[in-house]
Design a protein around this nucleic acid. Structure first.
Lengths: 313, 313
DNA sequence: TTGAAAGCGCTAACAG
DNA sequence: CTGTTAGCGCTTTCAA
């Protein structure tokens, strides 16, 4: 009667609903799950070391949650209790969770395989290493956006401030730079012997100092994160450059920090709203957990502020 | 047999466990919940507008999760589907959730009462308005820490850069300043006609400019957030002051931003780890949902960096 | 110490 | 259109 069965008269329906409401009736999720052998719960592994990217990750989680909600699903934050020896997959099986979204700053490929081997669909955001089913910003497109903009401003000596050289994301961005440089016949200005695995301010500062020593007359810098970009800005300022007059700097991420820094940072915005939504949609229609989707790439966009300017004549 | 019943021989126990593991046995949470009429799930309302404090909130969520995990509880992110007309409390009743932790940048007092009226225990983090059961940083102690430190550096003309004047937290901090000023016989330096409800950079900037116009010779500023403090720093720098030589500035929150700003920001750190843990403990032992606990105040600590210095002679 | 049975709240299938 | 029934996987109680 309550399940929206078609063959019920309208007033009867209303009557029943009214009484149900009045009695405070709420269906018991456990009983439903028990008989249906499934539950309307999506699993989330959210293990984010408290860095800056938190902002980005929590925006994605929120978007994911909203989409889940719109589809009648609840989110469960999965715990991996090492003490009680209960693993993620057990929690999932126990709660009849068949899809898991991984948002993590650590490498979760082991967990991922474990889950998949137990018949659970998995989608990983920005995986450290290439992963079976991943969703991420289209790094090639995003980096291109950044570089093209600098190019159109008239800059030709465009240096690249890389992030991690070993992660999936880091490599993709570097590749995009190489490709761009080749296509436009520019001199590559990048210090490949340096790795900036933590995308930190200090790494950005140091690597920029290195770039400044190695190459003279840098017009512009394309950075792999906003924090790296800020490090670059400090290094440039400490070296006597005035920004953006002398050098243009582009960040990556569009963290809130961009707006409170001087000069305000031009950057590439990752579309967290769309990523979270798409992630949820993808998981919900992924019927075979072992299937390998092609990486889901979400387009990024440019946010222009005060750290970029046309090349001075 | 599997439930840890005492009267079973050890080797029998091991034997059973081995076979159970081999068979991939995982207990069905729904069935357990159905028969026990309860579930090992804590509810979380996590609705955080994407501001800076995200960092703080997600650290607390993480700490809360870890403590929940240690106690064998899972976390469920509650959704309020307005479209399907399902409210938080229905979700809770449906899933036999009896405790909810609210982390929200919005006022949730309506939700709070609704939940409580349905027999669900609620604890709210940093509520906008005074709330029945709340957990928060001990704002009086925290503000005192900040002010005392500035005082001990030799500063006597200590201005106060308030945040919101209408929220529970904002008022508590202002009260602490007033109290301190009275006790130490200082001149109050605060612009009460200005409200800085969004704790934003611009508000910090503008209000500081106002303070500078109103009072001459400010020694130090105690701010209600790190972002406000940064606004103050910009205002001071734009007015020709060199920091921290001329003016000392203290923030509040200890966001990551403190470390990447110049000068690095001295601030008051809210103990997110302890707050999250305590919140979970409190909820788990709160047997009567209607009981009104006294506010749980968690001590803050000082983090000293480069934005504070002794008063120049 | 072991076995059997009832029942938690619901859905689905089938008979009226 | 309505009513009845079996059974989802587990715990608990009672009987052997």
């Amino acid at each position: 009667v309550l399940n929206g069965y078609a063959g019920v008269s309208k007033d009867m329906h209303e009557k029943v609903m009214a009484i149900a409401n009045q009695m405070g009736y709420v269906p018991n999720a456990a009983a439903i799950s028990l008989v249906k052998k499934k539950s309307a719960i999506l699993g989330v592994i959210y293990e984010v070391s408290s860095g800056f990217s938190n902002l980005y990750f929590s925006a994605i989680l929120e978007a994911f949650r909203l989409e889940a909600e719109a589809n009648g699903y609840m989110l469960m934050l999965l715990s991996q209790s090492t003490e009680h020896q209960i693993e993620y997959w057990k929690h999932c099986l126990s709660h009849k969770i068949t899809s898991v979204f991984i948002i993590s700053t650590r490498d979760q490929s082991v967990v991922e395989n474990e889950l998949r081997n137990h018949g659970i669909s998995v989608l990983t955001l920005d995986p450290i290493h290439q992963s079976a089913n991943l969703i991420a910003t289209d790094n090639a497109q995003a980096m291109n956006l950044s570089l093209s903009y600098l190019y159109h401003l008239g800059h030709r000596k465009i240096a690249f401030l890389q992030g991690s050289l070993t992660t999936y994301v880091g490599k993709a961005r570097l590749d995009a730079y190489r490709e761009f440089v080749k296509q436009h016949n520019l001199t590559p200005m990048v210090l490949l012997e340096r790795d900036n695995p933590s995308y930190s301010l200090q790494e950005g500062y140091d690597t920029t100092m290195g770039l400044l020593k190695q190459f003279d007359a840098i017009d512009a810098m394309a950075c792999c994160s906003d924090v790296l970009a800020l490090g670059a800005i400090y290094a440039l300022q400490d070296s006597g450059y005035v920004l953006p007059r002398d050098v243009s700097v582009m960040g990556f991420d569009d963290l809130r920090l961009c707006e409170i820094v001087r000069p305000k940072l031009s950057t590439v915005r990752q579309n967290s709203r769309l990523i979270g939504k798409t992630a949820c949609e993808t998981l919900l229609k992924m019927d075979d957990p072992t299937s390998v989707l092609k990486p889901i790439q979400v387009e990024a966009s440019l946010v222009l502020r005060d750290s970029t300017a046309p090349k001075k004549p």
